[in-house]
Design a binder for these strands. Structure first.
Length: 454
DNA sequence: TGAAATGTTGGGGCG
DNA sequence: ACGCCCCAACATTTC
């Protein structure tokens, strides 16, 4: 149950400005991110924000004018248009965003406008948590230990008593941004409901069964995860709100495991902050000469959920149909692409970036590197998932596979994760595009080739 | 936040 | 009763 009474306030920058007449601005920036402009699923989510009568209270929208070229972008333009005395925002941490916002801050300050940025989307700043030697952490466990020993995380603000909004600010029409897919409308199957209220509902629904999280989170056939990642990525709820809501309940193994996931989010963000190349370059330099395979055919089969391996196809189809994939299955599909198919982790990263409603630059890059074994605190390359065993272990009755791969629905539990062993495999489902034993052996050989001579 | 290969142990069938 | 073999069950090592 969502507690009654006022919700904690998730926007430090807005809170700080609330005493003045407000212009709230949402900037769609398609230019400075370069290769990492919002993916398709993210654009759908941005376009699907609740369009209330009081839209002004949500935000004005402007397409971004690239800041460095045009002297501060539209934050500066609108500041001038409205005669604003101060501009506040919640900090972004992607390398391109840091550069952009630094430039904008300089321009605004130069025009005599007060600028202040806030920590709105993280529990800690990426530069705050350091080893005793003063370096950023590269291994999760010591990072997490250090994070738990920090001072208690600040409580979220209370909502300001009232806010009033500056009239007469020109806003783009959301529809004019053409954020929604035209043809085909692949997003029609998304059952995601964006919005602040929905985020709070998801949080408190989850807290009611958080005690079982440690086991249930690994079961794609069960509803054991928090479903908070898209809300969190879009700032519809803040990690401080989540942290304190969890801490206000009985502490148990499930709660601790979940808090640790918030820790992973922080860990990934600070890895990206300190390693701006994270999305493109393996942290483990040996992997720069890894003999990746190129196969459009195999990549396409993976993307479409037609690999012939049930748990993988179920995951990839869940992603395509719903814009989200269960975390355990993300690891399984990534392992197959990288290890058995030998395809570069960046191809997988790009696909996830375009299709996930919770796509986040740091988490995506750090986790793909983690699976590939080339990250800072990575699974060893030789740790290769067997998708059949993973399916049998985490989807024991095959419910998840049957839900997303209807061709296999008629198979018995015994054959559901390996239909090629069934007496009569379904004719409309492909044979595996890779022999799991051979794929594994090839991956291990390739890894030998880049290992440092002993 | 693996899996497979290899090693060890111990119970039980059997000559 | 005894040794031998088989093989599950578990542990350890290797990739």
């Amino acid at each position: 149950m969502v507690p009654s009474g006022p919700a904690p306030f998730r926007q430090p920058a807005l809170h700080a400005a609330a005493g003045q007449p407000l212009v709230c601005l949402y900037v769609l920036d398609d230019e400075t991110p370069g290769d990492w402009a919002m993916g398709g699923a993210s654009r759908w989510l941005a376009a699907s924000q609740p369009d209330r009568a009081g839209r002004k209270a949500e935000s004005q929208g402007r397409h971004a004018d690239p800041a460095p070229r045009q002297g501060g972008g539209n934050r500066a333009a609108i500041a001038e248009e409205t005669g604003a005395e101060s501009v506040t925002w919640n900090r972004c941490y992607e390398p391109f965003a840091v550069a952009r916002d630094t430039a904008i801050k300089k321009v605004l300050t130069g025009s005599g406008i007060t600028v202040e940025s806030f920590k709105g989307t993280m529990l800690h700043e990426p530069w705050e948590i350091r080893t005793k030697g003063g370096h950023p952490f590269r291994v999760f466990t010591p990072f997490w230990n250090a994070m738990r020993q920090m001072a208690e995380i600040e409580k979220p603000h209370q909502a300001p008593h009232r806010m009033h909004f500056h009239d007469d600010v020109q806003s783009d029409r959301l529809a004019d941004w053409h954020l929604l897919p035209a043809k085909p409308d692949w997003a029609k199957g998304f059952d995601w409901t964006p919005g602040e209220e929905q985020a709070r509902t998801a949080l408190y629904d989850f807290l009611d069964h958080i005690a079982g999280y440690k086991q249930a989170r690994d079961r794609p056939d069960q509803d054991g995860t928090s479903w908070l990642s898209p809300h969190l990525h879009w700032g519809e709820i803040s990690p401080r709100q989540i942290w304190h809501a969890v801490r206000a309940r009985p502490q148990n193994e499930g709660a601790e495991t979940f808090l640790k996931e918030l820790g992973w989010r922080e860990f990934c963000a600070q890895l990206l902050y300190h390693n701006p190349d994270l999305p493109t370059r393996p942290l483990d330099e040996r992997f720069r000469k890894f003999p990746w395979r190129r196969s459009e055919k195999d990549l396409c089969a993976w993307q479409r959920g037609m690999t012939g391996i049930p748990i993988v196809d179920a995951g990839m189809r869940q992603l395509w149909q719903t814009g989200w994939m269960h975390n355990r299955v993300r690891m399984i599909v990534a392992s197959l692409l990288i290890k058995h198919l030998g395809i570069h982790w960046r191809r997988g990263q790009e696909w996830f970036w375009d299709t996930l409603v919770d796509a986040d630059l740091g988490s995506n890059a750090a986790n793909w590197q983690w699976v590939a074994g080339c990250g800072a605190d990575a699974a060893p390359f030789f740790r290769i998932f067997n998708p059949v065993l993973q399916g049998e272990k985490f989807d024991p009755k095959g419910d998840y596979v049957r839900r997303f791969v209807p061709e296999l629905a008629g198979l018995s539990d015994r054959h559901i994760h390996k239909p090629w062993t069934a007496p009569t495999p379904p004719a409309d489902y492909p044979a595996p595009i890779v022999d799991l034993g051979e794929g594994r052996a090839r991956a291990l050989d390739a890894f030998q080739a880049i290992k440092r001579p002993a």
